[in-house]
């Protein structure tokens, strides 16, 4: 019983098989997290390839799904990063699909949510911000630093504003990763607690009468979590596009 209600247990990584090899002090071992990631990549790839296999003019069900996804992400990139932001479209699309599928996979019963581990979301956010920095410097050189100095400001104001802008910039990958991670983590913990509550009440004799109450809450929370899973993937893609906009147009 105690194990069932433990809301943290679901985030535990489970090793599968022997460690494959070691790199330095790190052992490389297949975990259910790695399996979920590989599964997500396989699923996305299969859907994308099967959806486009027909190449029919009038799309079937799978092809419309693929096209809707494509158009959705494309319009997000276009509206947030501008038309020249489309060169980053594959990156944003991969991020969106990856996060979306992993978020939704975590909603399966007994599922594991890869995106509830901060190292994963942080790595994705760092990837985004490194793309912004590297591309920004490659395209604009030192003018990219103009991002931190709003034009038309008094020099005295700049002394205060530039550090704030720098910190604000550094906070971007943090907020990007923390938001996704915290949403997934908090949602799943809340779900688990309420579900566990139902189980506890059912096992507690007379109190079982009120068990439908937390059950209803758990059902409502599940619906909310599905919404959050999709929404957070979308927010991740949108913010990535907005940050990429800075790399393309650092000036004002």
């Amino acid at each position: 019983m105690a194990e069932k209600i433990d809301p943290i247990h679901q985030f535990q990584l489970v090793k599968i098989g022997q460690p494959l090899f070691h790199i330095g002090g790190t052992e490389v071992v297949l975990t259910q997290s790695s399996l979920y990631m590989i599964g997500a990549v396989a699923l996305i790839t299969i859907v994308m390839l099967m959806g486009t296999a027909g190449r029919s003019l009038v799309p079937g069900r799978l092809q419309s799904l693929v096209e809707v996804m494509y158009e959705f992400v494309a319009s997000t990139v276009r509206s947030s990063a501008g038309h020249d932001g489309m060169k980053f479209f594959p990156l944003v699309f991969s991020l969106f699909m990856f996060v979306l599928v992993l978020n939704l996979a975590g909603m399966m019963p007994y599922g594991f949510t890869v995106t509830s581990h901060i190292i994963i979301t942080a790595a994705l956010a760092v990837l985004v911000i490194l793309t912004v920095i590297i591309y920004g410097f490659m395209k604009h050189g030192l003018r990219f630093l103009g991002l931190f100095a709003p034009s038309g400001m008094h020099p005295v104001m700049l002394v205060i504003l530039v550090p704030i802008e720098v910190i604000s910039f550094i906070s971007r990958p943090i907020s990007l990763s923390v938001r996704l991670f915290a949403n997934m983590l908090a949602g799943h913990i809340a779900l688990k607690i309420f579900a566990g509550f139902v189980v506890t009440l059912l096992g507690a004799g007379l109190w079982g009468i009120i068990s439908p109450l937390p059950l209803a809450l758990a059902v409502a929370l599940t619906a909310l979590e599905f919404l959050v899973a999709v929404l957070q993937a979308y927010v991740f893609a949108t913010l990535t596009s907005i940050y990429l906009h800075d790399a393309l147009h650092p000036g004002h």
Partner: peptide, 22 residues
Amino acid sequence: MGKAFRLSSEFIAGVIAGAGLG
């Protein structure tokens, strides 16, 4: 709710970044 969460995470991220840099 998404909006509120986004705003609070923006704020917290700013503080975390500042503290981390410090």
